[in-house]
Amino acid sequence: MPLFTDHADVSVRPAVAGDEDTIARVQLAAWRDEHAQVLGADTLDLLDERAVAAQWATAITAAPPGHRVLVACDGATVVGFAAIAPVAGPDDTAAPGGVILALEVLPAAQRGGHGSRLLAAAVDLLREQGADQVHTWVLDGDDARAQFLRGAGLGPDDTSRELASGTQPDGSHRVVSEHRWWAAI
């Protein structure tokens, strides 16, 4: 019986300076694959990968307390990422929660367990920070994300928000909706 398998090592680790370019590429590739119908390919084409990378560099190296960025690796290759932040309770007596600000995996690396590992690591970090619940936002029409979150024990809580996304040819703004999904942790 062989001691080694033909499977690459997979892991999740904290993001470090230098990961920002790959994180930006992962994010934009995932968004273009998953959200072109809802957000509009024209809107997604306007996103500047260097500007997105600069924002991730700040999130990695100068984040506020409790904010973390994690990356999923297949061997040494970053194939996904997650970003979390603490959320204060609604009053002084309420326990704090946490939010998953982003969780994306390269389209070609999806269904390999990377999203599940990222979600588990994010929840572990939020628990360490004292969170008793986690939430995230799901864009209308993102059935794959809804299915993934449902399988992980999260569910919608009837809270929604509308966001403007791009300008239409007639000058109007496209409006998209997101729904909040949550779970006790």
Rank of each mutant, 00 (worst) to 15 (best):
A164S: 15
D33N: 12
E178R: 04
F4Y: 09
I23L: 13
A62K: 15
A146G: 05
L39E: 00
F81Q: 15
V10E: 03
A152K: 07
E178Y: 03
A108C: 02
D92F: 09
P64D: 11
L119M: 15
D21F: 06
H7Y: 01
I60W: 11
A57H: 15
A94V: 05
D19Q: 02
P107T: 13
G141L: 03
R145M: 15
P65M: 03
G151P: 04
D91E: 11
H7D: 02
L154S: 09
A82W: 10
A102S: 14
R161V: 00
Q37W: 01
P65Q: 08
T22Q: 10
Q37E: 12
R32G: 11
H35T: 02
F148K: 04
W56V: 09
D19P: 01
Q55N: 15
W31F: 10
D91Y: 10
A109W: 05
T136D: 02
D124C: 04
V78A: 06
G141N: 04
G75E: 01
G130V: 01
V26Q: 01
V123Q: 14
A36I: 06
L149M: 00
E128M: 03
V79E: 06
P156F: 00
A54G: 13
V99M: 10
A8F: 03
A183I: 03
T136W: 08
R111E: 11
L44H: 12
A146H: 02
R174E: 00
H135L: 11
L70H: 11
D140E: 15
A8M: 10
Q27S: 14
H67Y: 10
I84P: 06
H173V: 01
G80D: 05
V71P: 02
W181S: 06
V38M: 12
R13H: 01
R68I: 00
G98M: 04
L3P: 05
M1Y: 05
